[in-house]
Write a protein that binds this DNA or RNA. Structure first.
Length: 477
RNA sequence: GGCGCGGUAGCCAAGUGGUAAGGCAGAGGUCUGCAAAACCUUUAUUCGUGAGUUCGAUUCUCACCCGCGCCUCCA
């Protein structure tokens, strides 16, 4: 089914078709590795993950790149304050980022790249910008000459004149021709890490990193006959539209004379108590914070995924509780259809409902990734199937079709598998031992002992459910 | 001030020019030794406010009110 995507460039939902049939070249602005990512950051990455997973299920080969910025002002300041090298510091938070992505089941981009591994490419690109008159050197720094790129501002809808008058002058940037010009290469300052360049020691500006890595790994692979340098999708958080993505466009298009990206996809913000979650405001939760409070990464992912990406999501612990409960419903259902002994029959109406749910889910996702509507389709099927199970209509012939819908759902949402149980958890053997004792007590109608054992298991995080006719099941809470 | 997103039940949230999906929570019931899970019933005469267009608007138009974001590093 054809995907329709909102494109910031045109401010409308458009049918998506990649330049090269069957292959999507996509770049996502990742994290600056100066601290743990918070769940606001991960909202964007879960959104991107869902987009990429959906494209994959539609048969596309998704050639994706995500960068990790490993040199910037904050990192330099923090790493030196911590008495560690920039590289060491970046490695630590890059590893933490990878770990959090795994917990949240974010599939890694095909290429995860570090800015400092591409410095020579950045220098070369800046040299070309200087040579073509789009950039100039001042006192060892290089700036992009905005006056040379009239198309600036198209993505964000910014008025250039307004920018010019409104711009504040950074103390570092006194040498710029115009206040609105942005830095491509920063001259070295005492005590900072540096790389050699034609303009002396220094380091790249933030914006040039993404442009150059995207162009090297994806733009250069544009298919025959299409504009060189053009990629299919560029994604990131909405706050990146201006100035970051605007600057990226300028840096690339000034040289290639071709569109940098055909679709710009921006994920809306996560709010906390009605305000943007940000490191600066200090109102953030990391995945680790929430895990310490007993929440599961899969529930975090569910919450982040359940609100369509173009809508601001106000994060609350109550919302996370709700997500936990909703997800539990899906898991219990999956357990139920896997484990319940079924009669050798088929409820054909139910299989039709499964097919309808599957179609509705795909259609919802195809319409600009409407995850809320996709979930509704799944819950409709869950209720229909539970009703059939209760009534004894759910037969062996229904198991595979219904499970297939859940599998298709989880291929995108990736929430059904259980999280790793806590390290302190009882071993499965210990759990089974206690369950067996409880079963024995129940057969003896020793309810006091049975209930005590159930409480003991409950305290250890194991939820016990009896099944009619004897036996039971359990799960981690 | 400019640009953008949004205001739908207690909470989260979908959606359409024709009379309100789904989830969570609550209440009652069925089932259960008791639970849990599941199922059934129930919870918005109404979609920020006002006006307009229309046979009919939550959905279109205009105005206004409110929340948030970007305009500076930021997912």
């Amino acid at each position: 089914m054809e995907l329709r995507l909102y494109n910031t460039l045109t401010r409308s939902v458009e049918p998506f078709t990649p330049l090269e049939p069957g292959r999507v070249r996509m770049y996502t602005c990742g994290l600056t590795a100066y601290d743990y990512g918070h769940i606001g950051n991960f909202r964007t990455f879960v959104g991107v993950d869902i987009l990429q997973r959906f494209l994959a299920t539609q048969g596309y080969d998704v050639d994706s790149v995500m960068n990790i910025t490993d040199v910037d002002d904050k990192m330099i300041a923090r790493s030196s304050a911590a008495g560690r090298s920039l590289r060491e510091y970046a490695d630590f938070y890059a590893a933490a980022f990878t770990e959090d992505c795994q917990r949240l089941r974010i599939r890694p981009a095909r290429h995860i790249v570090r800015a400092t591994d591409f410095i020579p490419d950045m220098v070369a690109w800046i040299e070309r910008l200087v040579a073509s008159g789009h950039a100039y050197e001042r006192e060892g720094s290089v700036y992009f000459r905005l006056a040379s790129f009239p198309a600036y501002g198209r993505l964000s809808g910014k008025d250039l004149d307004g920018l010019q008058s409104g711009a504040r002058v950074d103390v570092d940037d006194y040498a710029k021709e115009e206040a609105r010009d942005f830095v491509l290469w920063k001259a070295w300052k005492e005590g900072e890490p540096f790389w050699e360049s034609p303009w002396g020691k220094g380091r790249p500006g933030w914006h040039i990193e993404c442009s150059v890595m995207a162009e090297k790994l994806l733009g250069a692979a544009a298919p025959q006959g299409s504009p060189q340098g053009t990629i299919d999708i560029h994604a990131g958080g909405t706050d990146l539209i201006f100035p970051h993505h605007e600057n990226e466009i300028a840096q690339v298009e000034a040289l290639t004379q071709a569109p940098f990206a055909r679709y710009w996809v921006h994920m809306e913000f996560l709010l906390v108590n009605g305000e943007k979650m940000s490191k600066r405001l200090g109102n953030f939760y990391t995945v680790r914070d929430l895990m310490e409070k007993g929440y599961h990464p899969s529930a975090i992912r569910y919450l982040l995924a359940s609100v369509p990406y173009r809508r601001q999501l106000n994060f609350t612990l109550e919302g996370l509780d709700q997500a936990t409960s909703a997800l539990e419903r899906l898991r219990v259902f999956q357990d139920r259809i896997r484990r319940t002994p079924l009669p050798d029959t088929t409820d054909s109406g139910l299989n039709q409902a499964a097919a309808a749910a599957s179609d509705a889910m795909v259609a919802a996702l195809a319409e600009n990734l409407n995850t809320a509507e996709a979930l509704a389709a799944i819950f409709d099927l869950v209720r229909a199937a539970n009703t059939a199970l209760d009534a004894g209509h759910f037969g062996a012939g229904n198991r595979a079709p219904v499970q297939a819908v859940l599998d298709a759902f989880d291929e995108i949402f990736a929430v059904l598998a259980h999280d790793a149980p806590p390290a302190s958890a009882l071993s499965p053997e210990a759990v089974n031992q206690l369950l067996a004792e409880r079963e024995a007590a129940r057969r003896m109608r020793d309810w006091a002992r049975a209930d005590a054992l159930r409480r003991q298991l409950d305290d250890a995080g194991v939820l016990v459910e009896d099944i009619k006719g004897g036996g039971g099941r359990w799960r981690w809470k």
